[in-house]
Design a protein around this nucleic acid. Structure first.
Length: 661
DNA sequence: CTAGGGTTAG
C-alpha cells in the first residue's frame, strides 16, 4: 500500500474524524501518523488536544505539551489556546492559568476559553473575574463570551444579578440568539424564576432541541415534574425527537412523581430510540426506578441487566445507584450479587466501598458480620479506609451488637492517630458511645466521653442519654441531658427523651417541672408521624390521628387487628407508654401510635402481595415492633419500616434487627 | 488560496 506522506492529508483525516465527534479515531489516526514518522504541525496539535481532553487523557496531553514546546509551536496563539482549553477541560486549572497568563497576544477566543473553562468547572466567581479583567483590558465580549457569562451568573443563583446581565445581553444585541436564549432559560430557572424563563421560551421563534430540554429541565429542577412532562409531550407534538439529554431530564421528572406507568413508558422509549447505550441515560433510568422507593426498585435490576447486555461498563455512579436500590429492597442475596459484580468489573473507589458497607449494614442490616468481612478484605487488599469507612464499620458493629469488633476498630483508628496525626473524630466517639451504651456498658461509655480530646458533640451526649433511657439509669441520664441541653438548648427531642427517662423511674415531679420549662420556653413536643407509600400515593398519620380522611375506617381496622393478634398471643408492652396515666389509658395511647395506624391502613388498602413501606420520624417503640412482627406472621406479609435510626424488615414474625435497635 | 482553538440543555 502506498503511504501518504503529505501532512495536509493526515491533518484532513484527523479533522474529519474530529468534526464527526469520533475522537477515538482522531487519536488512532494521530498515533499512526507518528508511527510513520510524520511530525505534527500547528494545525494538528489543537485537534488532537481536543480529542485528548474529551477522553480526559491528561498524561498524553502533557506529553503533547512538551512536544509543542520543543517544536516551537507554543508561539502559535491557536496552539496555545488549544493547550489552555485542554487543561481547563481536564480540570488542571493551574496549568491552564499559567499558559494563559504568559500569552503575549490574547485574542477574544482565548479569553472566552478561560471564562467558559472556569464556568464549566463550576467555578463561577473566577469565571466572572476573568470577564471583568477582559473588559478592563479593552476587549468587548461576543456571543460566545456572553453565553459563558450567563451560565456563570446562573451558578450564582442571584436573581438581581441575573436580570441585570440579561439586560446587558439584550442591549448588546445578543438577546435573540437560540444559544443565548437557552442559556437564559436555564439561568432563570436556577435563580428560582422559572416563569421569567418560560416567557423567553414562549417568545422564541426558532426553537431547537436544546432549548426544549432547557425548559423541561427548568420545571424538573424546580420540582414541578407535571409541568416538565407536559412540556415533553408538547415538544414531541411539535415534531421534535427526544435526544439522550431529554431522556435524562424526563426520567428525573418521573422519578420525582413516582409514576410507575410513565416510568415504564420512558424506559421503553429510550430503548426504541437507541439511547440505552448512553451511560447517562442508563444511569438516569436506574436512578428513576431507585428514586421511586417502592417495589419498582426491582426494575432498577432490569435496567441494570439491560445495560450489561448492551456490553458497556457501568461506572461508579451506576453502582452507587444500584446499591441504593438494593438497599431499599433490603435483600441480602441481592446485596451479595451486586457486591460480587462490583468487585469483578470496576475499580472500586473508597466512596463506593463505603456505599457497599452501608448497603450491608443499613440495607439488610444487623449484617454487621458481612460489613466486617468486607472491611478486612479491604485491608488485605491494602486499600486505605477513610473516616467514613470507619463510621460505617462502627455503626454496623453498634447495630449488630458486635462490641469486641467495635472496640478493635476504634483502637485501629487510634493507632492511625500515631501514624497519620488524625485520631477518631467526634462522630466516631458518638458511634462508640452508642454501641457501648446500648450494650449496657454505661460506665465504659461515660469514661470514654471523659477522655475525649475534643468537646463532646450533641451526638455524643444524645447517644449516652438514649442508652440511659434504655437501661433506665436516671442519674447518668440526667448528667448527659444537662450537658446536652447546654449544647442544644432548643432541641425538643432531647427534652422529651429526658422526660421519658424521669417517667421510667417514676419521678413524676421532675417530669412535671420539665414539661413546665418546655412550655415556658415555647418548646412543643412534635406529634410523631408515619408515612406509608404505594405507587405514587403517600399517606401520613400522626399519633392518634383524626385528620386522615379514612381515619374512622383505619381505627375500626386497627381494633379488629388487635383482637385478632391478641388471640395469637399478643400482649401490649406498656413500657413504651411513659405517661403519668392509668394503665388502661396507656394501652389506649399505644394503640394510636402512628405506625400502627399506617400498618392498619396498609393492610386495608394495599394488596397483600405488596410489601408495605413505612417511614417514621422517631424510633419505633417496643410495642409497635412486636405488633408488626406478629402482623407479618399472621398475615404472611412483608413490612419494611424505616425509622429515624435504621430499617426494620418484618417477615414471618421476625425482624431483621433481631430485636436489637 | 482553503485548514486548527472558544457557545446553550444534562
Amino acid at each position: 500500500m502506498e503511504s501518504h506522506n503529505s501532512p495536509f492529508l493526515w491533518n484532513a483525516m484527523i479533522r474529519a474524524y474530529s468534526a464527526e465527534g469520533l475522537y477515538g479515531d482522531t487519536i488512532n489516526v494521530y498515533a499512526l501518523m507518528r508511527k510513520r514518522g510524520l511530525q505534527p504541525d500547528s494545525y494538528t496539535y489543537p485537534i488532537v488536544l481536543k480529542a485528548f481532553a474529551y477522553h480526559s487523557l491528561v498524561t498524553e496531553g502533557k506529553l503533547l505539551h512538551s512536544h509543542v514546546i520543543k517544536s516551537g509551536f507554543l508561539l502559535d496563539s491557536v496552539v496555545n489556546t488549544g493547550l489552555v482549553s485542554f487543561y481547563a477541560k481536564c480540570g488542571e486549572t493551574e496549568d491552564a492559568c499559567a499558559l494563559f497568563d504568559q500569552m503575549s497576544m490574547k485574542d477574544i477566543v482565548c479569553w472566552n476559553m478561560i471564562i467558559t473553562g472556569f464556568e464549566q468547572l463550576g467555578r463561577a466567581e473566577e469565571s466572572l473575574t476573568f470577564f471583568r479583567q477582559m473588559q478592563l483590558e479593552g476587549f468587548v465580549g461576543n456571543l460566545r463570551t456572553m453565553v459563558g457569562v450567563i451560565s456563570a451568573v446562573a451558578q450564582m443563583r442571584d436573581s438581581r444579578m441575573a436580570s441585570s446581565v440579561h439586560a446587558y445581553v439584550v442591549c448588546n444585541g445578543f438577546g435573540s440568539h437560540v444559544f443565548m436564549q437557552s442559556a437564559l432559560v436555564a439561568m432563570y430557572s436556577k435563580c428560582a424564576e422559572v416563569r421569567k424563563g418560560r416567557k423567553i421560551f414562549d417568545q422564541m421563534v426558532d426553537k431547537d432541541l436544546v432549548c426544549w430540554n432547557s425548559m423541561i429541565a427548568a420545571y424538573e429542577k424546580s420540582e414541578q415534574p407535571e409541568e416538565s412532562l407536559e412540556l415533553f409531550v408538547k415538544m414531541q407534538h411539535d415534531g421534535f425527537i427526544a435526544g439522550p439529554v431529554t431522556m435524562v431530564i424526563v426520567a428525573a421528572a418521573i422519578g420525582q412523581l413516582g409514576d410507575d406507568l410513565r416510568a415504564r413508558s420512558v424506559h421503553a422509549k429510550s430503548i426504541r430510540n437507541g439511547f440505552v447505550d448512553h451511560l447517562n441515560v442508563g444511569n438516569s433510568l436506574l436512578a428513576m426506578y431507585a428514586y421511586m422507593q417502592n417495589e419498582d426498585a426491582k426494575e432498577a435490576l432490569v435496567v441494570f441487566d439491560q445495560m450489561l447486555a448492551l456490553g458497556f461498563r457501568p461506572d461508579s455512579v451506576t453502582m452507587l445507584i444500584v446499591a441504593g436500590a438494593y438497599s431499599y429492597l433490603g435483600s441480602l442475596p441481592l446485596a451479595k450479587t451486586i457486591h460480587g459484580f462490583m468487585l469483578k468489573i470496576i475499580e472500586i473507589s473508597t466512596r463506593l466501598r463505603n456505599a457497599i458497607i452501608d448497603l450491608y449494614c443499613f440495607g439488610s442490616h444487623g449484617r454487621g458480620k458481612e460489613a466486617l468481612e468486607l472491611f478486612s478484605g479491604m485491608q488485605k487488599e491494602g486499600i486505605e479506609p477513610n473516616d467514613i469507612t470507619f463510621t460505617s464499620i462502627l455503626s454496623a458493629c453498634s447495630h449488630a451488637g458486635l462490641i469486641e469488633e467495635g472496640r478493635r476498630c476504634f483502637s485501629d483508628i487510634r493507632k492511625m492517630q500515631k501514624q497519620f496525626d488524625k485520631g477518631p473524630s467526634v462522630i466516631h466517639y458518638a458511634c462508640m458511645v452508642d454501641m457501648l451504651g446500648r450494650a449496657g456498658l454505661l460506665s465504659e461509655a461515660s469514661e470514654l466521653i471523659a477522655e475525649m480530646p475534643v468537646e463532646p458533640s450533641s451526638g455524643v451526649w444524645g447517644a449516652l442519654l438514649g442508652a440511659c433511657r434504655i437501661h433506665e439509669n436516671a442519674e447518668l441520664g440526667e448528667f448527659a441531658a444537662k450537658n446536652l441541653l447546654e449544647v442544644k438548648p432548643q432541641h425538643t427531642g432531647y427534652h422529651v427523651l429526658l422526660s421519658n427517662l424521669y417517667a421510667t423511674s417514676n419521678r413524676w415531679h421532675e417530669v412535671g417541672e420539665l414539661r413546665h420549662e418546655m412550655h415556658n420556653r415555647g418548646l412543643r413536643k412534635p406529634a410523631a408521624f408515619s408515612v406509608i407509600e404505594f405507587g405514587k400515593e403517600v399517606h401520613g398519620f400522626y399519633t392518634a390521628d383524626q385528620s386522615h380522611p379514612q381515619h374512622r375506617e383505619v381505627y375500626r381496622r386497627l381494633e379488629s387487628l388487635l383482637s385478632e393478634l391478641k388471640m395469637a398471643g399478643y400482649v401490649p408492652d406498656k413500657s413504651g407508654a411513659l405517661h403519668d396515666v392509668e394503665e388502661e389509658d396507656k394501652e389506649l395511647i399505644l394503640t394510636m401510635h402512628s405506625e400502627k395506624l399506617a400498618v392498619a391502613f396498609g393492610t386495608m388498602y394495599i394488596d397483600n402481595w405488596i410489601t408495605l413501606h413505612i417511614t417514621k420520624d422517631l424510633r419505633i417503640c417496643n410495642d409497635c415492633h412486636s405488633f408488626i412482627k406478629l402482623i407479618s406472621k399472621v398475615h404472611k406479609r412483608r413490612i419494611i419500616v424505616r425509622d429515624v435510626h435504621r430499617f426494620h424488615h418484618f417477615e414471618d414474625g421476625w425482624c431483621s434487627c433481631k430485636d436489637y435497635w
